[in-house]
Simulated assay, not measured.
Amino acid sequence: MPRRSPGALRAEQPPTKSSRSHIRGISSGTCHAIHLIERRSRNAAHSVGFTAIALDKYERFVRTGGYGALFPANAACLCPGCDLDDVRHARDLLEFVLRKLPKRAHSELHRHLAPLDELYLRRTLPNPFADLDHPWWHRRFEAD
């Protein structure tokens, strides 16, 4: 009976939940630091990979086609998977990670977020009646 190669044996194994995902445009060192934060978080909504998903949702929202104003919408459901449909919640999660990162990784992620934040500010409308205690990305007009 022929022996199977190690690669063939690994291919049969299901992927593990702890496998890290690489975030496009972010160095592997910063991705590793993000992964550690995700693993150590005690919040049920902060599972491994939530940062990549939140960043993707945020980037897709601000880069939506057209030149008109964008209005963030509330998530239809508040479960951990669906709450990222609200781009403001996605930005909240990114801010959470940003504050927990070491200095070098913080700088890199901040440089990655800065142009997206600029687009968000440019494409959304300020709400003069918003609560000033909320972060700046919550103080924009939202969809009805």
Results as ranks from 00 to 15, higher is better:
residue 19 S to L: 13
residue 31 C to Y: 00
residue 38 E to N: 09
residue 8 A to V: 06
residue 16 T to C: 09
residue 67 Y to C: 05
residue 46 H to D: 12
residue 4 R to N: 05
residue 47 S to Y: 10
residue 72 P to L: 01
residue 95 E to H: 15
residue 116 L to R: 02
residue 134 H to C: 08
residue 109 L to I: 06
residue 89 H to T: 10
residue 45 A to F: 04
residue 109 L to C: 04
residue 124 T to H: 02
residue 141 F to E: 08
residue 27 S to A: 15
residue 110 H to E: 14
residue 29 G to M: 08
residue 101 L to P: 02
residue 138 H to K: 12
residue 11 A to I: 07
residue 67 Y to G: 15
residue 12 E to R: 14
residue 134 H to Q: 15
residue 67 Y to H: 09
residue 51 T to L: 02
residue 108 E to A: 07
residue 101 L to I: 08
residue 107 S to E: 13
residue 45 A to S: 09
residue 61 F to E: 00
residue 84 L to T: 04
residue 25 G to M: 04
residue 11 A to G: 10
residue 112 H to K: 15
residue 74 N to L: 13
residue 5 S to A: 15
residue 109 L to W: 00
residue 44 A to R: 11
residue 142 E to K: 09
residue 144 D to Y: 09
residue 69 A to F: 12
residue 79 C to L: 07
residue 125 L to M: 15
residue 49 G to L: 01
residue 102 P to G: 04
residue 42 R to A: 08
residue 22 H to D: 12
residue 100 K to Y: 04
residue 144 D to K: 10
residue 31 C to S: 01
residue 43 N to C: 13
residue 89 H to M: 07
residue 120 Y to N: 00
residue 35 H to G: 01
residue 29 G to Y: 07
residue 132 L to P: 01
residue 37 I to F: 10
residue 54 A to N: 02
residue 59 E to C: 04
residue 65 G to W: 04
residue 38 E to V: 11
residue 119 L to K: 02
residue 83 D to G: 03
residue 50 F to G: 00
residue 91 R to G: 00
residue 41 S to A: 15
residue 38 E to F: 03
residue 84 L to Q: 03
residue 130 A to H: 02
residue 7 G to S: 11
residue 50 F to K: 00
residue 117 D to W: 01
residue 98 L to T: 05
residue 59 E to D: 15
residue 21 S to E: 11
residue 27 S to G: 13
residue 31 C to V: 01
residue 117 D to M: 06
residue 112 H to G: 02
residue 140 R to W: 03
residue 133 D to P: 00
residue 40 R to M: 10
residue 32 H to I: 08
residue 106 H to C: 08
residue 28 S to G: 09
residue 15 P to M: 05
residue 103 K to C: 04
residue 20 R to N: 03
residue 103 K to G: 05
residue 66 G to T: 09
residue 103 K to H: 10
residue 21 S to W: 00
residue 107 S to I: 10
residue 8 A to G: 08
residue 39 R to A: 12
residue 34 I to N: 00
residue 39 R to M: 14
residue 63 R to E: 05
residue 104 R to S: 14
residue 62 V to K: 00
residue 12 E to D: 13
residue 39 R to G: 08
residue 66 G to Y: 06
residue 130 A to R: 01
residue 22 H to I: 12
residue 48 V to P: 00
residue 64 T to P: 02
residue 136 W to M: 10
residue 92 D to L: 05
residue 113 L to A: 04
residue 47 S to K: 06
residue 51 T to H: 01
residue 13 Q to N: 12
residue 110 H to C: 14
residue 139 R to Y: 05
residue 135 P to Q: 11
residue 43 N to T: 07
residue 83 D to S: 11
residue 96 F to N: 06
residue 45 A to W: 06
residue 74 N to S: 11
residue 114 A to Q: 13
residue 54 A to M: 03
residue 117 D to K: 06
residue 22 H to E: 15
residue 90 A to R: 00
residue 32 H to F: 13
residue 116 L to M: 05
residue 113 L to Q: 03
residue 118 E to Q: 12
residue 18 S to K: 10
residue 72 P to F: 01
residue 7 G to F: 14
residue 80 P to Q: 05
residue 53 I to A: 14
residue 131 D to V: 03
